[in-house]
Design a protein around this nucleic acid. Structure first.
Lengths: 250, 250
DNA sequence: TAGTGGTCTAGACCACCGG
DNA sequence: CGGTGGTCTAGACCACTAG
């Protein structure tokens, strides 16, 4: 059982560490997903079964599942069941890829890999990825195209420790977040981006086929896993002459 | 009463126009706010009172209020009550103003008004604001400063019909969305932004004190009211040498 | 102390889905 | 048909706030 009637065995409601029962249920279920007890795409037990297992009511389980659905961790389908969300292209497109071509129709970009290397983390990488000094990172450089047009020059840094064997792979997949989930059990749950305009450096300009100094959009992203720990630092230089970055205010 | 037991007097559940009871309650409450039956900052009746008035259960009212809270339309305070959200600076800062100075500490910008005029809407304004050809708009140009540094050259277009008397006001307030709410009963509920990098035009560059052609961030926003109708078209040219645009991915 | 929102429970009926 | 999630209800106890 998760609990007795009145939270008697837990911290009392007023105390700082208190979590409502449905949050405790949520934490437990999130932990099961992050530890791959349930895989992406897999169906969860029904609300009634989870409730019975944990000794709480169906309504409490429902509230936990509803929050996880809002967090895009789960997908619920009436009449079918509740499933662990996949990192398929449509989800990535909707949640993480905010660059839209002039047509207004979102498309998943193709990638051309330029470099993959392993190196000791720079001070900036240590800071962005919350590493210890001396830790190593995997660095990836690639060019991403929208509808066949080279548009984004992208640089990534990943903690080597969390992605063993990634550098030695024959090809690094285009949909990285799906790969992180399926091969490393790491779910990208969110992130923070900061954007600014700058003049295109010579190297990136050449790669994108634009004059050096052309105004480009620089996107600096740190992606976070289910525990809120930094997993990826991504720096994208984007030629916005034929596309734009969309952001909803709600 | 809102309803009989099984939605018998409404469209059946399977039909296209069907809305669950808590959504009907939400619509009604949103309409009351948009019609200023309840003013910003005002307290709503308690859940039990609303439930009794509408002939539904407290749980149904709660679900409607929870969604409206998630939409930032309401603020709930335990032990006090439920209040209509205000467009105060902290809310604007959090929800609509995504430009953050290098310090990382969000600040509300100061404004220096340049021009206010009334004119027939251009074709682009007609499209962005969903106007009829021949409708008029109010155009505002202003410079916005962050920590005393001129940073944003901003242009706004508003439907004249919805803001009578705005142009003749002695001074147009800095916090426009708060003004829209308090003087015109128009609540800005959300919006869509699209961003790109471009070279600073001569006039804006001069106003911002930067060389012509400097890369700047162009932000194109359409702000929407509670009914999802366009209320404002805003075009901001931002010198991002000392600030950046932040965007959360969740 | 009275009233509010926050949490939790138990049970009911529904639409949707698959076999 | 049986099982799933989606909705709705009724009632309980709690913590927080105001007066």
């Amino acid at each position: 059982m998760m609990n007795e009637k009145t939270n008697s065995q837990d911290e009392a409601r007023g105390t700082p560490g208190f979590l409502p029962l449905y949050r405790q249920v949520k934490s437990l279920l999130v932990r099961r997903i992050s530890e791959r007890f349930w895989q992406p795409g897999e169906i969860l037990p029904s609300e009634m079964q989870i409730a019975a297992e944990l000794g709480v009511s169906q309504g409490t389980v429902r509230k936990a599942l509803d929050e996880m659905t809002a967090d895009r961790l789960l997908v619920r389908r009436q009449g079918r069941g509740t499933f662990v969300a996949r990192h398929d292209e449509s989800r990535i497109l909707f949640q993480f890829f905010k660059i839209v071509p002039e047509t207004g129709i979102p498309v998943f970009p193709e990638s051309h890999l330029r470099r993959v290397e392993t190196a000791p983390a720079s001070p900036e990488e240590v800071a962005r990825l919350a590493l210890r000094p001396g830790d190593s990172v995997i660095r990836i450089a690639r060019i991403r195209s929208l509808n066949g047009r080279p548009t984004i020059s992208e640089y990534l840094a990943l903690p080597l420790e969390r992605f063993p064997g990634l550098v030695s792979q024959a090809d690094i997949p285009n949909n990285l977040y799906d790969h992180f989930a399926s091969d490393y059990g790491i779910t990208i749950a969110g992130g923070d981006e900061s954007l600014r305009a700058m003049a295109a450096p010579a190297e990136d300009a050449a790669l994108l086929g634009i004059p050096e100094g052309t105004p480009i959009l620089a996107i600096d992203r740190v992606a976070l896993d289910l525990d809120g720990k930094p997993v990826e630092w991504r720096y994208s230089l984007c030629d916005t002459r034929h596309c734009h970055y969309v952001s909803g205010l709600r």
